[in-house]
Nucleic acid binder design. Structure first.
Length: 394
RNA sequence: GGAGGGUUAGCGAAGUGGUCAAACGCGGCAGACUGUAAAUCUGUUCCUUCGGGUUCCAUGGUCCGAAUCCAUGACCCUCCA
């Protein structure tokens, strides 16, 4: 049977190739080889939690220059169920995406579905957000689901803890996350899928180091940095990333989970991160906000009602090439989905373009200058750290 | 011509003697959002020099006190002729 999806290779673990380290920082230029082609890093992955990047077609996502996209175990487990996706021929066929897919493990839902949840050694009991049914997600179950979904990269089931927390809790949580990582790896059985371990340990360097060392002993195809963008101050986030990257093996890809503020991407690329994902560009878009070279704007604002210029004159995306702020504002205010699509296209493109620029800066060994210029344009005189916390807090 | 019902903030709509500058919804204006329980959530929305000022169709009245009671007028709706 002729498969409509172009699978480049059938039986391959992902492979990271480190091409260059930036002269003045820890930033890295590389490529990641997947079953669906080879992509450059640093890279930004658009998020398609429920097997769709909200409001966009796969063709549109492709056109933005996206490589890997992210989907979610928890959501697909609840609906439509991994067996349906399996029956469809796997997630790629199910959603008509012929690029690589990474599935998150459900670990973030341990954090975000905060109210009724019980964490035990066995796993996490949730109440389904759909019908209140009590569900038990375990490391084994998460991997089983992901094996069936047949994504290219599966994530270990971890505990993503919020901020702040006690050192004692972090210590216990890291050990549990490590045991869960081992249990997940033990049942992992999809030969064409890769498995990533997740570094936790909050803001404690020794715990991050310990977590990395233990994960490396277990052995994974790539490593993620978790537990960031959960309400901590920005400088704490950057430190957490530093403490993780410092000990991670150079020959494996590094994925910082859930981070997608432009400045955070730059700061963390500088600290050695290769891959990012974030819901922000699409969520902000649906809420009427757009990134521009000169900062984030709220397109709904009255002052744009007769502004017939593009969102960002310097942007090469479809929305900026063909539509004005006034028109997009009208669509958003009128609650038309096309407005949400246009802003989603723009915001994702903005972040992907950012990673393209960062790759160029790494090549040219001028990423610090790039950062300075970016901040000057994007934040103006504002202090971009300004005691701001990241993410949703607890 | 006769009989009822109605008129409250930008709109819709509660309120029928004091705790009413007036619930609630919409609309408006702003804000938040970082591995998506999020096309969601929050604030604000008569004027103000923040002391206060002026409101509930209009005018006059009752009362210590009126969006609320009475009188007259204006306009709107329904039914009967």
């Amino acid at each position: 049977m002729q498969c409509s999806l172009r699978k480049i290779s059938d039986n391959m673990k992902i492979k990271y190739n480190l091409l260059k380290e930036e002269k003045n920082t820890n930033a890295r230029l590389g490529t990641i080889e997947t079953n669906y082609g080879t992509y450059d890093t640093p890279m930004f992955m658009p998020v398609g939690t429920q097997a769709t990047v909200k409001t966009l077609s796969p063709e549109e996502v492709k056109d933005l220059g996206a490589g890997i996209i992210l989907s979610n175990t928890y959501h697909l487990w609840l609906r439509p169920g991994e067996d349906i996706v399996d029956k469809a021929g796997g997630l790629h066929k199910f959603m008509n995406w012929d690029g690589p897919i990474l599935t998150d493990s459900g670990g973030f839902q341990v954090f975000s579905l905060s109210k009724p949840k019980w964490i035990s050694e066995e796993g996490v009991k949730f109440k389904s957000h759909l019908n209140g049914e009590e569900l038990l997600l375990t490391p084994e179950k998460s991997i089983e689901i992901q094996n069936k979904l047949d994504s290219d990269i599966a994530m270990s089931f971890d505990e993503c803890i919020g901020f702040p927390h006690t050192r004692k809790y972090v210590e216990e949580s890291v050990e549990r996350t490590l045991r869960w990582a081992k249990r997940g790896k033990d049942v992992f059985n999809n030969p064409r899928q890769s498995l990533f371990g997740i570094v936790q340990g909050a803001e404690y360097e020794d715990l991050r180091k310990h977590c990395v060392e233990e994960l490396v002993k277990i052995g994974f195809d790539g490593y993620s940095i978790g537990g960031t963008a959960v309400g901590e101050p920005k400088d704490v986030q950057y430190q957490q990333v530093e403490y993780s990257c410092k000990y991670l093996p150079k020959d494996k890809v590094r994925y910082l989970m859930g981070v997608g503020d432009p400045i955070d991407i730059i700061e963390n690329v500088i600290r050695g991160v290769d891959i990012f994902d974030c819901v922000a560009p699409t969520r902000l878009a649906r809420h009427g906000h757009a990134h521009t070279k000169y900062g984030k704007i709220n397109v709904k604002n009255n002052k744009y009602k007769d502004d017939f210029t593009p969102i960002d004159e310097t942007c090469d995306c479809y929305a900026c090439k063909h539509y004005t702020k006034a028109y997009i504002r009208h669509l958003i205010v009128a609650d038309e989905t096309f407005g949400q699509r246009l802003l989603s296209i723009h915001n994702i493109r903005f972040l992907i373009k950012l990673t393209e620029d960062l790759r160029e800066a790494i090549k040219n060994d001028n990423i610090l200058e790039y950062r300075e210029k970016f901040i000057k344009d994007y934040y103006g005189d504002k202090d971009y750290l300004q005691n701001k916390t990241t993410g949703q807090g607890e």
